[in-house]
């Protein structure tokens, strides 16, 4: 379980978070919505250990991450958290397979068979040896999902994962995420401004001006 208490983040020019409290249960799919500048990406970055808060605490199963040192945090991130962003951030001169294997390499050791298997699960078994430039936007994002999940993270943090995709591709990606989520049982925290995308989650937080203003749960 992730516990967030009194989270504040103050930048020199602005205040991004003004005291956020929330709990995220294991295996939950949580969507966070809000207008631009409402602090949702900042919250996601702090949740993922990519940034430190000015005040407050974030703990994973009782383990506080805001007090961890840089190198401890790096180890924690690589073993527990997967990221997907709006941009794919794939290495352009590596193939899809190699991009996934790179994530394996930073985690521990590479295993080509396992990487190929992961790409097969996201429906890219025919695209293993293609470079990102040879893949469509949806395919690139699927590589990103394979890369984010290759090290079996407990939590997947997604920041506008479908922001660059058309409706059809968005649906495909979300279906895929849904399938993997129910099969592998990781937690998803997805930030979006698209109500259609947010609707795929079981719970929706709405943010405004650095605060959570609404917390709704859906039961399907």
């Amino acid at each position: 379980m992730i516990k967030v208490r009194g989270l504040k983040k103050v930048y020199p020019s602005a205040v991004a978070l003004r005291g956020v409290d929330m709990d995220i249960q294991d295996n939950e799919w949580l969507s966070i919505m809000g207008p631009s500048g409402s602090g949702k990406s900042t919250l996601l970055n702090i949740l993922g250990g990519l940034d430190y808060p000015t005040e407050g605490s974030v703990s994973y199963d009782g383990k506080e991450i805001t007090t961890m040192k840089e190198d401890e945090l790096a180890v924690f991130r690589r073993e527990n958290i997967g990221f997907i962003f709006q941009q794919s951030y794939l290495i352009p001169y590596l193939t899809a397979l190699e991009n996934v294997m790179l994530a394996q390499y930073f985690h521990s050791i590479v295993d080509e068979k396992e990487a190929a298997e992961a790409l097969k699960r996201v429906g890219l078994s025919h695209r293993l040896h293609h470079r990102p430039s040879e893949l469509s936007g949806g395919e690139q994002q699927r590589v990103c999902i394979a890369r984010a999940l290759i090290n079996s993270p407990k939590v997947l943090l997604a920041d506008e994962p479908t922001g660059n995709l058309d409706r059809e591709n968005t649906r495909v990606i979300l279906e895929l995420l849904g399938e993997l989520h129910s099969n592998e049982g990781f937690t998803i925290v997805l930030v979006t401004h698209d109500p259609y995308v947010a609707g795929w989650g079981k719970r929706l937080l709405t943010m405004e001006d650095g605060r959570i203003i609404k917390d709704e749960s859906f039961h399907s």
Binding site: E79, H107, S108, D111, S152
Partner: peptide, 13 residues
């Protein structure tokens, strides 16, 4: 399996 297996091998090595 998967990442756990790789991590075991990595740490062993």
């Amino acid at each position: 399996k998967g990442a756990e297996r790789r991590k075991y091998i990595h740490e062993f090595m």
